Amino acid sequence: MRRSELEHAIRAATEIIKQDAVFIIGSQSILGSFSEDELPEEATMSEEVDIAPMHDDDAESLATELDAVIGELSQFHETHGFYVQGVGKDTAVLPSGWTDRLVKLSNDNTKGRTGLCLEPHDLCVAKLIAGRPKDHLFVGAVLKHGMVSAEVICDRLQTVENDNLRRDRALSWVQSSFFS
């Protein structure tokens, strides 16, 4: 995925849900901090943008609407080669203070609307807590390319609450992979 595609996703999502800003929760939030030319290939492979409305009801109706209109297998997906996965803002397990570190992506390509992207270390924490093979590949790539610090990721992992088992697994993975 390219930053221009993320900007397009922000523009489309905000128009559909009639809000000026959205959270970018998944891996492509890295494009708020780095361009695709700076990133390793493993960090831009996804054709999915996880977007959470700033304000949604308990049933996540707006997230569901994003899925229906610009989600996987939609006309938007077929036309543009990427799609939006509508999610709730609590979908990702994130470290304390993550909202204070959001990276704003707003420019002419977003029509002045804003994508609030996860800061790269916070994104890595969320990916490691999810713990899927593709998440380890993503985090490993941005660590190896010096885009994030293993020490900062470990510090932030320590602040994750309510999921000690996955937090401890994530810490162990980082420590064994990058501190040996």
Rank of each mutant, 00 (worst) to 15 (best):
D163S: 15
R167Y: 04
L116K: 14
C124L: 05
G115K: 03
R101P: 02
C117W: 05
F82P: 05
L118R: 05
A126F: 10
S74N: 05
C117G: 06
G112E: 05
L62V: 11
G140L: 02
E151C: 02
F82C: 07
H136M: 09
G71C: 03
W98A: 10
V152Y: 05
V139N: 01
E78A: 14
V93E: 13
S74W: 02
F138P: 08
Q85R: 15
Q75R: 12
V160G: 11
N109E: 11
D155N: 10
H77E: 05
G81L: 10
T99W: 04
L165V: 13
H80C: 09
T79I: 13
R132M: 08
V87P: 05
V142I: 15
L66S: 11
M147F: 12
G131C: 07
D108Y: 06
L128A: 05
A130P: 03
A170E: 10
L157M: 06
A170H: 11
L137D: 10
T79Q: 15
D168V: 00
D58W: 08
L73N: 13
S106M: 11
Y83D: 04
Q85M: 12
S96Y: 00
L118T: 03
T79A: 14
A141G: 09
E60R: 15
L165I: 12
D100E: 13
G88P: 02
A92D: 12
H80P: 07
K89V: 11
T110L: 03
R167H: 06
H80Q: 14
N162S: 14
I153P: 07
R156A: 02
V84G: 01
L102C: 03
F138S: 04
F76R: 02
S61N: 10
F82T: 06
Q75L: 13
L62Y: 13
H121P: 00
C117N: 11
R166V: 04
A59R: 11
P133M: 01
G86T: 07
S149E: 02
R166T: 14
F82V: 06
I129T: 05
G88Y: 06
T64N: 12
S96W: 00
D67Q: 10
Y83F: 15
D58T: 05
S74R: 07
W98K: 03
T99V: 11
D90M: 12
V93D: 12
R167P: 05
L118H: 05
H121G: 00
S149L: 03
S149W: 01
Q75I: 11
T91A: 15
C154P: 00
Q75Y: 12
F76P: 02
G146P: 09
H80F: 15
V69H: 09
L118S: 04
K111P: 00
D67A: 02
A126Q: 06
L66N: 12
V84W: 01
E161Y: 10
R101V: 06
Y83K: 06
G146M: 07
L116M: 15
V125L: 01
E72S: 12
L105Y: 07
T114G: 00
G81N: 08
G71E: 02
R132G: 09
